[in-house]
Design a protein around this nucleic acid. Structure first.
Lengths: 197, 197, 197, 197
DNA sequence: TATGAATGAGGCTTCATTCAT
DNA sequence: AATGAATGAAGCCTCATTCAT
């Protein structure tokens, strides 16, 4: 099927562009990466970029979109059968490590992008809620202790996580923040919730 | 005092540039505001900008620097004689409302700027710590309850605050987030800390 | 060979830019020629210039470099089989006539340029030494007369030549200096060396 | 005489501008020195420059003009009662040393300036001819040797001198050329003329 | 006369996007 | 689909000169 081959080829090129863009965005930042950068890194002509994507923005949005899905899947897989809040959070943290650079970039850029991508990380958060919430609630009940709404539980986790991530320059200059402080962040969160498992 | 008048004039122009820049930065974002924008808004020729600031970057940094100081002072004043954690946080929140747009911009831009400005918000945070910490500790002791380190107390507040702020588009599209959710954020934080005053 | 055509095209444009630049540099002077001048004269958009050369300086240096080589070749060819000092010098002078304007410009500009181009005219001088030196030495020996070091022979020729050239406005305002005074300069030089062939 | 005092003052300021300009031109080059440079160095406001000179060009021309006169006088004085060609040339060379930087600058810039300044160095050359010519001629006669026209005698001296000066970067990088090679240049010239006194 | 802030006309460079091949 | 030269709209910055004080 000649036709099929062509389309397959095209799809591959498109994917290559997206992968290169993702890598560059994570490395140098989204704004600092221009279309010529992406093209040359993808061993493509500059013009070819625009055969696959009408505008630069389209690439950015698609990369972000794909990222949301991929990260979500990856995390779901990683969190796997963890049961206690701590193990769940540690799995999450560990899984995120590989995506750290882009994730941080995303935190900074997302608010400036059109609404339709803004929810990109929601997928991750919602997926993760599925694991974290029951575990936390269970612990809370056992401790007969504090009751925090579901959104409170989720928000405070992501708030803390994002806080450290956006201040990486401060907490882990030129290093992986999560590698260095992943456990600490998890502990800090659990302390906050008065949970110790 | 001719001499004095002149200097005063110059200082006024310089301030006008900074104010216009501040406003534009808050409105359109720092990166999206160019020097010509600032000039025309300040009713100056483009070249005049560079009489007062050698480079665009110098304007950006100065605006941020001034912002840190001004916000810090403003908040200190506002928090005034508040005693309980809740009243302190509410004062803070209210005081910040006026600066909300630029503050959010800053959260997004700061990590990409040179190190020497990165601490710009530290002034605010440190100043505020002076008020918040004792109040929270007092409550914690009375409640004979959870003990959180100082940095934990501060971090969780700013983490939560920044989380909501950077997601303003989600929580309060086209509105002032703090006006709409200031109280809620404070409550959520206090719940988290198990404090009710 | 589509590929080849493209590259050829590109090379042609690049050459067009260099030629236009060369012409303009000779006409108006290097400093007085701006990139927009070159672009419009080459029937290109301003931006296109920077597709072929990263900076204006790169154009300047390349034009000078090429000039050195071309002039050197051209002179070597022209001087050809001339045997006597006089015929050699006249050939040189004649060959230089076509390049007079740029050559003068170069004399004035070279000292202000980076070291690596400063030797640009050395190629010409060294190449020419190969012809002039033996001929002059032969004459000197025959005349059993003055002995001048090699560098003395070369320096005095170029000194005299450059002297007249840099003072063209005085000696041949609005005309070609070499056309008008080429012979005279040669004669003056030969007299100085006490050579009459 | 209030009036007189004022005028004197004004004249002084004018002179200060010219002196500063001269110094800066010699240091950084004429083109690289801007009016603001001159003003601040002269401890004057930028605008004040234009009270004394209508345009920047006017300063340049005046500095050059004055330079011609001053150098001429200085050299005349220095050459003093020297009798032999060698001593005359050495005096000239020595006298020029102090003015070397600007003199070189002038050689490069003069051809680009309006005709009326182009003769600026003529004063020097003509003045000097008055000393050099008789001395050289005397020697030539005694040697019953070569007869060179007056202009030939003068031109070859200045040609050689200027040749070395414009190639200072090559012959005496970052040093005074005349201090280093003054004698050598004189010798080379005298050899050329077959004179040994 | 002196001041110096302001002007405005350039000048160089970048970059997403287009278009002929 | 791919190429990559060309486009053109900005963007930042410089500097001689002017002008109100």
């Amino acid at each position: 099927m000649e036709r099929g081959k062509r389309e397959q080829q095209k799809e591959q090129t498109r994917q290559r562009i997206l992968e290169v863009a993702y890598r560059k965005f994570a490395e140098k930042g989204i704004e600092a990466t221009n279309t010529a950068d992406i093209a040359s890194e993808a061993k493509l002509s500059h013009g070819a970029i625009f055969v696959h994507f009408k505008t630069r923005q389209e690439i950015v949005l698609k990369v972000i979109d794909d990222f949301g899905v991929e990260l979500s899947v990856h995390i779901t897989k990683s969190v796997g059968h963890s049961r206690t809040p701590r193990s769940i959070l540690l799995s999450f943290t560990k899984a995120l490590t590989k995506f750290e650079a882009f994730y941080i970039e995303l935190l900074l850029v997302l608010p400036k992008l059109p609404e339709n991508v803004q929810g990109s990380l929601l997928l991750v958060q919602n997926g993760f809620a599925h694991y974290l919430l029951p575990a936390v609630k269970r612990e809370m009940e056992e401790a007969k202790f504090k009751r925090l709404g579901e959104s409170g539980i989720m928000n405070s986790w992501f708030a803390l996580l994002h806080y450290y991530m956006t201040n990486r320059n401060w907490y882990a200059p030129n290093k992986s923040l999560l590698k260095k402080l992943g456990k600490k962040i998890v502990n800090e969160y659990l302390e906050l919730l008065n949970i110790n498992k």
